[in-house]
Design a protein around this nucleic acid. Sequence first.
RNA 1: GGUCCUGUAGCUCAAUUGGAUAGAGCAACUGCCUUCUAAGCAGUAGGUUUCAGGUUCGAUUCCUGACAGGAUCACCA
Length: 596
Amino acid sequence: MNLEQKISATIQQAFKELFDHQVGSDQISLQPTNKEFEGTYTFVVFPYLRVTKLNPEISGTKIGEYLTTHSDVVKSFNVVKGFLNISIQETSWIDIFTQLYKNPDLGKLPKNGQKVMVEYSSPNTNKPLHLGHLRNNFLGYSVAEILKANGYEVIKANLVNDRGIHICKSMVAYKHFANGETPESSGLKGDHLAGKYYVIFDREYKKQIAHLIENGDTEEEAKKKAALMVEAQEMLRLWEAGDSEVVGLWKTMNNWVYDGFDTTYKKMGVDFDKFYYESDTYLLGKNIVEEGLKKGVFFKKENESVWVDLSEEGLDEKLVLRADGTSVYITQDMGTCELKYSDFKFDKSVYVVGNEQDYHFDVLFKIMRKLGRPYGDGLYHLSYGMVDLPSGKMKSREGTVVDADDLMNEMVATAASHTKELGKIDGFTAEEASELYETLGMGALKYFLLKVDPKKRMLFNPQESIEFQGNTGPFIQYSHARISSILRKADQIGVDYSLKGFEGLAKLEDAERDLIVVLNDFEKKIRQAGEEFSPSQIAQYLFDLAKEYNRFYAELSIFNESDQKVQSFRISLSSLTAKTIKAGMRLLGINVPDRM
RNA sequence: GGUCCUGUAGCUCAAUUGGAUAGAGCAACUGCCUUCUAAGCAGUAGGUUUCAGGUUCGAUUCCUGACAGGAUCACCA
């Protein structure tokens, strides 16, 4: 039983004995006491006045008195209006710290026997990744790590959109304009090479349209008639027919792209347990349409197209199979959903996909539930907002896209120049220095993208967004490096900061206690982040922790402290803070340096 | 037009899910390096939580209605 549960239980007991009233202990919620008042936890008595039949002050006082006499963890209390502020025994805090300090699995909740799939990244293979993908990848990776910490078995999946008209566009342009260019001959990363021809397609296609319009076609006609588009459509047909030349080019170009993505993923620090390819899955789902018809979940219209009626669920009718019997997007997603389940038998499945697909996933999940899938209630769309630039939306056609590779390189370069400016790389080898820049640059970027509530749109200003001070990744990393420095010194002069070193300690400074309070919240935050699929909870927590530590650091001296017990306790406290920061940052996919 | 999301300090974001006088960071200003890393700490200033109603002991949070921004509403993916 943790501290809050202990207090809740005693409050429950108080209600029973003082007011002869049963309250569920899970209904008793404690909140942190505001800084301006004395105490750590606050119990709000207003909701219970009907039970106590006394005014708020007296109610609070009665419960407070009960707590101080019946609980061995409560030290004292005060009542302000209807708020019962509870102070905890210093020895209880020391006990709590000891438990945390002993825990070899810090930040890991016990296995819960459940399996969850997290699908994220899911790129198109016709162009390189951009800033929006960074948010997706960092979110997906972090949520997967957070779920692992919550005791799930996690499968990270990537559904690669490797086929379709967009790839054919790159291929057509490549055929016409590349002169056999390759990543080797051009020095371009494979994904950037494919992207180059996707852009060229668009440019040349527009020229053709303009030309046709000049010669009297309407815009609509011109868009359909333009030779490049006709050729792309034809290429898609050939691809579906298995034409060896088309498939050959498709394979070649996709492999270039995968090589490029590998490099980018590696730099991002993300990974996957399972890849799915749409070229394998795009025909799936028709059997589910059959099943749905049999079960009466779907219905056929006169022209043989198949629909689902979701009006009872607040949506409308939605097509699931075309009149000509071919699939649409949702058909394929139904099939892929089922395929994933048959592969892994998960309890939950999380889709990390932008909020422009909210409606699509709403429909998909409602269909799977209507079909009575056992995992239906475990389907979750982790919908995140777009990343906007100061100039507005990113548009590839207008060249306002922030490329992922470029951005990451810039971040690392900025970290490097900033670090050099501060003159902090004395004694670093060149290799160590560049590793540090990487850690800091990527840490700044990841933290920036993860600290915001996923569902909110966010603004990214390339010049100003990434700071190294305040609520940033490097600030938290810095706090870790500071502590590492202390631990190095402690080791060097041989201070014992194991449990024995502070055995029998009974007194705490406020700054020490406040730090323990925050450290004690780690597990709660991990649970919350897992329930809400929200890395921002962890990010926010780590910032609070680092701030709290820095206050402690500024207020209390460690190596000038004459009391041996107190000294080793402070080092232990520092050590646990470092471990917590490291474990928490891991959940965000961020590394922490020992020196910076 | 229908549906969904968002609206909090000049800017970027929080607010323990309905709790106290709405908090951080950046930017501005004032202090603190002869002491464990100043990428830090302490402080000042900055608010009609878009607006108008409602629900109750209590609303940034829930409800209704405006206003603003965004997404979506294809036999596209």
